[in-house]
């Protein structure tokens, strides 16, 4: 695993450390939405910032920045995680999915379609995180109960919908793939 991260030489003093940090001295290789890539980042760089600022994938949102709201949800090796509380260095050798990776060439993902059909989107800010939390759930548990759905999205805040339509949309996809 260490081969995925190239480490800079240990800085001798604080000013040298600052220079090393600014120099984006880590090269991190991972698979993003099915495609292998390498990015050069500072050790302090958060995955959410690499996705948004470095790679232009702005579907991943940052709202609270403290792991509470879920707008920064990404899927890491099949599991929903918070990209705002994760160093980019930590995804070396792993597989990351963001909302941009869900749609196929001609069709959007069934969960995305269900959110549209059900009216589960209002302002839209929580939507990418909600959809990714739902995808992680359905990939592992294709026939979730209403409680399973509520539990899976309980780490994603929505201030518009009251959640009812979101739960309905996820339930609809689960039933449709039967």
């Amino acid at each position: 695993m260490t081969s995925d991260v190239q480490l800079a030489t240990r800085p001798a003093d604080v000013s040298a450390r600052d220079r090393v940090d600014a120099a984006k001295n880590l090269v991190v290789s991972f698979v993003l939405n099915g495609k292998p890539l390498s990015v050069a980042v500072a050790p302090t760089e958060l995955l959410a910032d690499t996705l948004r600022e470095g790679l232009g994938l702005t579907g991943t949102k940052v709202a609270c920045g403290t792991g509470d709201c879920g707008t920064c949800t990404a899927i890491l090796d099949g599991e929903a995680v918070r990209s705002c509380l994760m160093l980019t260095a930590m995804v070396a050798g792993k597989t990351v999915e963001t909302i941009e990776g869900l749609a196929g060439e001609s069709d959007i993902h069934p969960i995305q379609q269900a959110f549209i059909d059900t009216g589960a989107v209002q302002c839209g800010y929580c939507t990418p995180g909600m959809i990714l939390a739902a995808k992680a759930l359905l990939d592992e548990n294709p026939k979730p109960s209403a409680d399973d759905i509520k539990e899976a999205i309980s780490g994603n805040l929505c201030r518009c919908t009251g959640y009812t339509k979101i739960i309905e949309a996820i339930d609809k996809v689960a039933n449709a793939v039967a």
Binding site: T2, L7, A8, R17, A22, L26, P43, T44, A89
Partner: peptide, 11 residues
């Protein structure tokens, strides 16, 4: 976040 030196340990 303040800068830090990053290392990895496997054991």
């Amino acid at each position: 976040m303040r800068p830090f030196h990053y290392e990895r340990a496997a054991t």
